[in-house]
């Protein structure tokens, strides 16, 4: 094996992994705090990607700027989605199953809307610096990848700081560790759930933009993204932010290496084999459930 190629694919793996991590953290939070397995999570990522694509092709807006605009916009959209669709589910006896079915339907509807508006062709985010790279010795770091990586890192760090340092973030963690106690001390579960859901969806938008800087995307890309999300959350532990971030990196590196050295059809075989192994042997992930 060529060591330069190994290190080069490690680097791509870490970049990819950071993006999976950002998408995964929100998915994991909704799952852990609200008991909602949000199947349309990655579609909101695609929504972010198409938003950035449109602004870029029509007005030349940089994807980073689009991410900063899409985040608050998606936050508001997600609050509405929560109130209209998710909140009524709290009455359902099997919240987890009900939420999966409902958001699966939502994913299909949104995917078809994406096809209607943007057609089914694959798209690529190509900002002006798309073909430039940062070259260090024998290694090269493509600018779009670097920016996607940085965007994800900022997203994850902000979520982490929010959860650890703010009163509302603390209430989110409390609600997921013991709902009844959180309610006893004044936490309004509906409000906390809405904020959690909206944060997850809005960071998914930024994650989608980051991912679109790395790969091309099309309206059904979210299906594959979703499977990666399950993988990241199951390896990292439901609701565990640091664990999810590390799991994203690990999976990114594994995918990066297998992409470089194995025929393409092996890549998914390996990643999803890994998913099975985890479900069987470490269902609570490498790092435990809460963090």
């Amino acid at each position: 094996m060529d060591p330069v190629l190994v290190i080069q694919s490690l680097i791509s793996g870490v970049m990819m992994g950071m993006v999976y991590a950002l998408l995964g953290v929100g998915f994991s939070l909704t799952w852990g705090v609200m008991h909602v397995i949000h199947i349309s999570h990655a579609v909101f990522g695609l929504l972010g990607a198409y938003f950035a694509y449109t602004l870029l092709t029509l007005y030349g807006v940089d994807p980073v700027v689009s991410a900063m605009v899409s985040t608050p916009l998606l936050f508001i959209v997600a609050c509405a989605v929560y109130q209209v669709l998710i909140r009524p589910l709290t009455k359902a006896r099997e919240m987890v199953v009900a939420s999966m079915i409902l958001t699966f339907g939502l994913a299909i509807i949104l995917e078809n809307l994406l096809v209607l508006v943007w057609k089914a062709d694959p798209r690529l985010l190509t900002p002006s610096y798309a073909s430039e790279s940062w070259i260090i010795g024998p290694f090269y770091l493509q600018y779009p990848h670097l920016i996607g990586f940085a965007l994800s890192l900022v997203g994850i760090s902000s979520l982490y700081v929010f959860l650890k340092k703010t009163t509302t973030g603390m209430a989110v963690r409390a609600a997921w560790q013991n709902q009844e106690a959180a309610r006893l001390y004044g936490v309004n579960l509906f409000r906390i759930s809405m904020i959690t859901f909206a944060l997850a969806v809005s960071t998914a938008g930024a994650g989608g933009i980051s991912l679109a800087l790395l790969y091309s995307f099309e309206p059904h890309s979210h299906n594959l993204w979703l499977i990666y999300l399950f993988l990241v959350v199951i390896v990292g532990g439901v609701g565990n932010v640091i664990g999810t971030a590390l799991a994203g990196l690990i999976i990114g590196v594994i995918t990066g290496l297998s992409m470089a050295f194995l025929p393409y059809q092996w890549v998914n075989l390996i990643t999803f084999g890994l998913l099975m192994v985890f479900l069987i042997f470490r269902p609570h992930g490498l790092f435990g459930e809460v963090g």
Partner: peptide, 16 residues
């Protein structure tokens, strides 16, 4: 309690 939170964070949750 909130088991994964520190003692002080648990106390502060009382003053939410």
């Amino acid at each position: 309690l909130f088991p994964a939170m520190t003692v002080e964070e648990n106390l502060l949750m009382g003053a939410y």
